[in-house]
């Protein structure tokens, strides 16, 4: 059952079309990944889901309620973990969580117990009375999450929740996302980190220029590029000796790209031309430092579909 339905939504800023006739359905109980480079329209889409900005055309429904006509109701179903840490440094952790949860109607003892639960969930219970001023980036990110979940929302929107934090805190956050989902929360997760999306999300939408360019499970998306093999060869020097046209003459090779001292050779699946590729490099007298045969991942999918790297 769809918990969020996005129907032919368009958002324009002057002449710029941020989201272009986009349609999506997010199912109840799933972790849904939104992938796309900066400026692809992810944040605009999230802001429309949370009624923070108006929709020019189309409709978004959360639990069958229209976000345009029932904004307060739809807002009450969601909790948002913004990309930027949005907490007050002059309020204690508990005061921060209580304040934001209070905006969703929680009061009195229930408010306090839910706020404490959220702090426990994010591993900050022992810091409840501390001010976040001296916290590490990871701890602040965890508090950022606690502020979004204390009111037990059915849908949690996480906009790049792991930016700029240490691996330990990142791992904590990823485990938290899984646990929230296990408890029944639907999670909409955006990230630049492909491996996070691969690890967490059951379905993924790749967005570029305000449109969904691919949608499906990880396996479905990878199947888009299953016909491709990728070999990365890193050479010591004389990279200018490499002639891309000569490499393309090797049977099965479809494309060649050169980045600094790394040559990326794309071939048709099952073309079995690795030996020929290595032979080409040795014939040119180039010292090979490293050879890497890559299995298609979401980065490859993204690159194939958009011609750009995700972090471009």
């Amino acid at each position: 059952m769809s918990i969020v339905r996005i129907e032919n939504v368009t958002k324009k800023y002057g002449n710029i079309v941020a989201v272009n006739d986009l349609s999506l359905s997010i199912e109840e109980g799933e972790i849904f990944g939104l992938l796309g480079p900066n400026g692809a329209g992810k944040s605009t889409l999230i802001n429309m889901i949370t009624s923070l900005i108006t929709i020019d055309e189309g409709n978004i429904y959360i639990k069958d309620a229209n976000t345009k006509s029932n904004a307060n109701l739809t807002k009450s179903f969601t909790g948002i973990v913004p990309q930027d840490i949005a907490i007050y440094e002059d309020l204690t952790c508990l005061e921060n969580v209580k304040f934001f949860a209070g905006l969703y109607g929680l009061r009195g003892k229930e408010l306090k117990s839910k706020a404490m639960e959220a702090l426990e969930f994010t591993g900050l219970a022992d810091k409840a009375k501390d001010f976040p001023k001296g916290f590490s980036g990871g701890m602040k990110r965890r508090l950022n999450i606690a502020c979004a979940i204390a009111h037990n929302p059915e849908i949690i929107i996480m906009d790049e929740p792991t930016v700029g934090i240490d691996p330990q805190s990142r791992n904590h956050i990823l485990q938290s996302v899984k646990e929230l989902n296990r408890r029944g929360c639907t999670v909409i997760y955006t990230s630049h980190y492909m491996e996070e999306v691969e690890e967490l999300c059951s379905r993924i939408a790749i967005i570029d220029y305000g449109k969904v360019i691919a949608l499906g499970t990880k396996q479905e998306l990878k199947s888009i590029v299953k016909h491709k093999n990728e070999v990365w060869v890193t050479v010591k020097n004389n990279i200018d000796k490499i002639v891309q046209e000569e490499l393309k003459e090797i049977p099965g090779v479809t494309d060649v790209e050169i980045y600094e001292n790394t040559v990326m050779v794309y071939s048709m699946h099952e073309s079995e031309n690795l030996e020929s590729i290595i032979a080409y490099f040795t014939s040119k007298g180039l010292g090979i430092l490293q050879i890497e045969s890559k299995v298609p991942d979401l980065e490859t999918v993204f690159l194939t579909l958009t011609g750009r790297k995700l972090r471009d």
Binding site: S51, L52, A71, K75, P82, A86, L103
Partner: peptide, 14 residues
């Protein structure tokens, strides 16, 4: 600046 306004307006506060 703190982006807390974003969070407040994402909640059902009028």
């Amino acid at each position: 600046y703190l982006r807390t306004q974003y969070r407040i307006f994402a909640s059902p506060v009028k």
